[in-house]
């Protein structure tokens, strides 16, 4: 295993240093449904540097999921500017966006979204199928990712045999397997009890310590305080953006 410092350097080689990893300026998203315009995100501006751990917080309907979809190139913004690694969504073809999501972004969803009747190993391999990585390397990469979330003993289990916490850890392993620049976690603990939720957050914190950039969406203050920085949203606007003074350690919480 490379040291934390070396890993950080490795990421820095890959990314465009002229821009922050995420640059958002006046970003707006308006949904139009039967001629009625619903603004979901209004004039958001912020940036996230490589290696950060940012939590986006807000009540439901505050636009945080919309923001995450835009950040993950899953959706197209209405106006404003969003640069990921220096480039906007318009710089890419649809296939290149798919490749970008595959190589540089990892997603963790509230509903886990594991393939049913499929083993942990095969689930984690899924992004590799679309990656162009040589097939003989798949097993090793997937096993390493599973190892890093501490599920090696579950590797041949089917996803339905796992507990909720374990499922989310598989989802994290899946997000990690292509060694992305950033992990987007959308309410990853929403379907979990506090204990397994904290285990998931602990893994995210550990990944961040290893140099991985994390954007976490949550509506729980306790979880948000595990990040290094909290962006609070309300009615589609960014209400505040501040570093966490007294950062929680999920591990501490876990040990209580």
């Amino acid at each position: 295993m490379p040291t934390t410092e070396r890993k950080k350097e490795m990421y820095n080689e890959n990314i465009n240093t002229a821009y922050p990893l995420i640059l958002v300026r006046g970003l707006t998203k308006t949904y139009v449904n039967e001629d009625i315009e619903t603004p979901a995100l209004r004039d958001a501006s912020f940036s996230v540097e490589a290696g950060e751990f940012a939590a986006i917080m807000g009540p439901s309907g505050s636009g945080k999921s919309t923001l995450l979809h835009l950040l993950g190139f899953l959706d197209r913004h209405t106006s404003g500017e969003y640069r990921f690694d220096g480039k906007t969504i318009d710089d890419y073809s649809p296939d290149e966006i798919a490749r970008l999501r595959n190589k540089k972004m990892g997603f963790v969803f509230q509903a886990f979204n594991l393939l049913p009747r499929t083993t942990v190993l095969e689930n984690v391999k899924l992004p590799l199928l679309y990656s162009g990585t040589k097939e003989k390397e798949w097993d090793g990469l997937a096993r390493a990712a599973i190892e890093s979330v501490g599920l090696s003993h579950r590797i041949m289990h089917e996803s339905s045999q796992l507990s909720g916490g374990e499922k989310q850890r598989v989802a994290i392993a899946r997000a990690l397997v292509n060694d992305p620049l950033i992990i987007f976690a959308d309410e990853p603990t929403g379907n979990l009890d506090t204990r397994s939720g904290m285990a998931v957050i602990e893994i995210l914190q550990w990944l961040n310590n290893e140099g991985r950039t994390i954007v976490l969406i949550t509506h729980e203050t306790e979880l948000a305080e595990c990040a290094k920085r909290i962006i609070i949203m309300r009615d589609g606007k960014i209400e505040s953006d501040s570093p966490v003074g007294n950062r929680r350690k999920a591990a501490d919480h876990f040990s209580k």
Partner: peptide, 16 residues
Amino acid sequence: TREIGLRKAVGATNKD
């Protein structure tokens, strides 16, 4: 539908 969404999120192209 969800499986399709997930596959796309992890990098499947429309063609895939």
